[in-house]
Every structure is written in structure tokens, then in C-alpha cells.
Design a binder for these strands. Structure first.
Lengths: 135, 135
DNA sequence: TTGCCTGCAAATAATTTGCAGGTGA
DNA sequence: TCACCTGCAAATTATTTGCAGGCAA
């Protein structure tokens, strides 16, 4: 779907800045901080990025998450695919995990609407480095 | 185990402030922000709470997490029990979930060392309120 | 004694907000 | 036109840090 249509459907005005943010998120399809988006965008103030990201989050167009020890928020297009990440403790890179091990979580006296799962560990590169150190 | 011993084992000096923080965490056994700890503590500056929490985290004595949209860190005694939370989107309360639905997560080309799971939804109270609104 | 701790105040860093002017529908 | 957007700068909030004095081992 195109950026314009998504914005319009959500009842948001199609401004140059909003379309720009949407296109950046669509092209990258990975979690980005406001700062990240700002760097990729042209002629847009950082506070506008924050305001747009927040608005998109309110409308459910993007997700807003924190990751590991990071003190920043990460925004990501919430497309249809249910997605979790494997986060490398060595380099911090995040790789999406296809399978969701939590298919039907249920908790007593609690209406479950969603969940978030992060898997920590080491990617192949960092694991190799770790093994070399041990030797 | 007593606070003194845990600190000593980690090679940390047993100061009044550290013991105080440890005892607060042991008595509550729930995720707390630095601010939360500060309020319960007596005669201790907020920056000391931050420094102690960080040190305990480095030593693996506490866990450090962010939750949902919150822009604060939550510290919690990392006792033996593997714990996840169900977080209420209505009131923000967190209730521990006994069972871990992720028993053996495995990801291709990734060495998994741990994971974090948060379940979102509504607690009984908030669910009732929501139902009343619908009527 | 001595190096690790703490308090205080000032510094950072991420995010939010007030206000005046701009622009899409 | 007019309500909603944006840019800029200043405000807020959580957290960190420099420095001088204090205390556990």
C-alpha cells in the first residue's frame, strides 16, 4: 500500500514530511530510532520526526519499542507479519525471527491482546570472535 | 541469602546504602525504578541509587529492563526463578507469569543465551471496566 | 591508610512542548 | 479558509558524571 493511502485511511493529512517518514520506514523495514529517521530524511526537524512517529504509533501504523539496555525508542512499520527479534549481545544487531514460539499464551485472569519477545545471544560473527578469545 | 553476603561475594563493599537498596529489592521482589527505590530508602541521594543499581546490574545481582512504552529502567533481583510478566494496558500493573512458553528457542546461526517475554493485555479489573464501557 | 563510595550540583541525552507562521483539503 | 502541521528554541525527564570529602576493609 502507498504512503498516501495509509495516511489518508488513518485520517492524517498527507504532508511532505509524513510521506517522507513513511517511505523511509517502508524502504528499511527494520526498527529505527527517531534519530535514524532524521538522518535519512531531508529538510525535516527532529521534533517533527518525533511528532510524526508518535502520531503513527497512536494510529497503530508503527510499533514503538525499546530494546535491551538502550534508552531510545525504536519505531517500525507494523505490517501484517508478526515479528520478533534475535538481538546480538556482541554487536547489537537485530535479526528478525520468523517463527513465533508463543502461539497461544494464556494467563489466568488476564485478557491477552499481544506480546513481545526478544531473544538474546550472539550472531555468528560475534560467536566466532568469542571462541577465538577462549582459545 | 543475606544482603551482606551477596555484596561480599560480588566483591562489593557493604555500605549502609547498598544494604538498604538490597533489602528494599528483596522485600518487594518486583521491578522497581531508581525513583521507586529512592522513595523507599532513607537518607540516600538519587544518584547513589542509580550508581548502586548499575553496579548490581554489572554483577548480575539484578536485572535491568524497560517495559512497554515506559522511558524508565526497571531493576529487579535476579533470583533463580525465570520470570516473565503480563502487563496490563489499562492500569500498567505487572503480574508475574509462572509458566514460560519459550522453553527452547533456537535461531539459525545464532547462539541463544536468553530471552525476554512480555505479555500485554488487560487485568480482570480493567477488563471489567472495558466491558462496562461497551454496554 | 587507602581506594572505593557517596552527596551535591552540574552535565548529558532523549524526548516533549509553546508559539508563531505555513499548508493541505 | 481554517484546522491541522511544522520549525525553532526552550523545557522536561531520566540518567550520568566531576569533584571533594567520607568510610569500609
Amino acid at each position: 500500500m502507498e504512503a498516501n493511502k495509509i495516511l489518508a485511511d488513518a485520517g492524517l493529512k498527507c504532508t511532505r514530511q509524513r510521506i517522507n517518514v513513511m517511505e523511509i520506514l517502508m524502504s528499511v523495514s527494520a526498527p529505527m530510532t527517531a534519530e535514524n529517521i532524521y538522518e535519512k530524511a531531508e529538510g525535516m526537524s527532529l521534533s517533527t520526526v518525533y511528532r510524526i512517529a508518535e502520531k503513527l504509533y497512536e494510529k497503530g501504523i508503527v510499533t514503538k519499542n525499546t530494546i535491551q539496555d538502550s534508552d531510545k525508542f525504536y519505531y517500525e512499520l507494523s505490517d501484517d507479519s508478526h515479528r520478533h527479534y534475535a538481538i546480538c549481545l556482541g554487536c547489537g544487531r537485530m535479526q528478525p525471527v520468523r517463527v513465533c514460539p508463543v502461539t497461544a499464551a494464556s494467563v489466568d485472569g488476564f485478557t491477552v491482546t499481544g506480546h513481545k519477545l526478544e531473544i538474546y545471544g550472539y550472531c555468528r560473527d560475534c560467536e566466532n570472535k568469542r571462541e577465538q578469545k577462549t582459545k
